[in-house]
């Protein structure tokens, strides 16, 4: 028992070290940030909104894979969670505003998840053209990954902490990403001795920074239940959540009122989760599907309780 706890602590140290090594402070502006700076506040809203929706859904995923929380005693768990939100066809284009006075006044063009930006010609003045940027991401699933620590238990309550800092990726096309989350879960089934299910309630706060321009934050409040059958764990839950992505930057658009400071609300407000896990001693593997305005999936591996 002592040897296995030492192994677990050593493992955690290695993982924390890796995360710190990844937390390189890349101050250079990424290509995504430079693309965003070309937009004024109304145009950037449509271009970036899918990121607000998908980040919002991803950052609330994977917080639990069981509703069991011991009523007392020290417990420690470490998970590595990967999430992926489905990018729908509707999220690949949007109706953009053309510059004031341009005819047509609106046009359909690529979002950050779209393909080619649309070029429009002025309806009456020959030679005048305007264009939206191309999409940056070519993917049907928008991914995120984060390690998280679970520490308990005090009166059937455990704390959940997640943090990751990633350097810029794709030769600086995607800016550095930092995410941290903090939450707590409390066992309800401890008050119901004959409960056939483990039941818990939870509250989580997440904060996400993408480069210098984008900040997202969100809150999730939920209830979850699980049933352990030998090595199998079936779990599910429901939660209310919100997320807001803030964009703050100085636009290069000469018609823009500087500085730009816009809030984009994530689409997901309610989430239903169903999942399954396998527990082999201190090693666990789990996966779940999350349904709401945005469909996303999460899964991962866990060590510890």
């Amino acid at each position: 028992m002592k040897a296995s706890r030492e192994r677990l602590v050593r493992l955690l140290c290695v993982l924390v070290g890796v995360v710190l090594l990844l937390a390189v402070d890349a101050s250079a502006q990424s290509e995504l940030e430079k693309a965003i700076r070309q937009y004024n506040s109304s145009a950037v809203t449509g271009y970036i909104q899918p990121i607000a929706d998908l980040f919002g859904a991803n950052m609330h995923a994977g917080y639990y894979h069981s509703a069991y929380i011991p009523p007392s005693g020290f417990s420690l768990g470490f998970d590595i969670i990967a999430m992926g939100a489905i990018v729908t066809d509707e999220q690949k284009s949007y109706l953009a505003d053309a510059p004031t006075g341009f005819a047509p006044s609106q046009f359909k063009t690529a979002t950050v998840f779209g393909e080619k930006g649309t070029t429009i010609q002025h309806a009456t003045v020959p030679g005048l053209e305007y264009k939206g940027s191309d999409g940056v991401f070519n993917t049907s699933i928008f991914p995120l990954a984060v390690p998280q620590l679970r520490i308990g238990s005090l009166y059937g309550t455990e704390a959940v902490i997640r943090f990751i800092a990633l350097p810029s990726m794709g030769e600086d096309k995607i800016p550095e990403i930092k995410l941290w989350g903090l939450g707590a879960r409390h066992s309800i089934s401890q008050y119901i001795p004959e409960s056939p299910l483990d039941i818990a309630v939870s509250g989580f706060y997440s904060n996400f920074n993408v480069g210098d321009l984008i900040t997202a934050k969100g809150l999730s409040l939920g209830v979850q239940a699980s049933k352990s059958i030998k090595i199998l764990m079936l779990y599910g839950g429901m939660s209310w959540e919100n997320s807001t992505m803030n964009l703050a930057y100085k636009s290069t658009d000469p018609t823009a009122a500087a500085p730009i400071d816009v809030d984009l609300d994530g689409a997901n407000k309610f989430r239903a989760t169903v999942g399954v896990g396998i527990s082999l001693g201190i090693f666990k593997v789990f996966a779940d599907a999350n349904f709401g305005s945005v469909t996303n999936y999460s899964g991962g591996i866990g060590f510890g309780r």
């Binding site: 493992l11 290695v14 993982l15 890796v18 995360v19 990844l22 290509e31 430079k34 693309a35 070309q38 590595i80 990967a82 393909e115 080619k116 930006g117 264009k131 939206g132 940027s133 191309d134 999409g135 940056v136 991401f137 070519n138 993917t139 928008f142 991914p143 990954a145 390690p147 990633l166 990726m169 794709g170 030769e171 096309k173 995607i174 990403i177 636009s251 290069t252 658009d253 000469p254 591996i301």
Partner: peptide, 30 residues
């Protein structure tokens, strides 16, 4: 430990594999 390091590395680089190559940014030129 090796498996975990590989997994972390894989997750950290996931985002770079889905970026459009040669995408055009419409840059304002006042």
């Amino acid at each position: 430990n090796v498996l975990l390091l590989l997994l972390i590395g894989l997750l950290a680089t996931t985002g770079s594999t889905c970026i459009n190559d040669g995408f055009l940014v419409a840059v304002n030129l006042p």
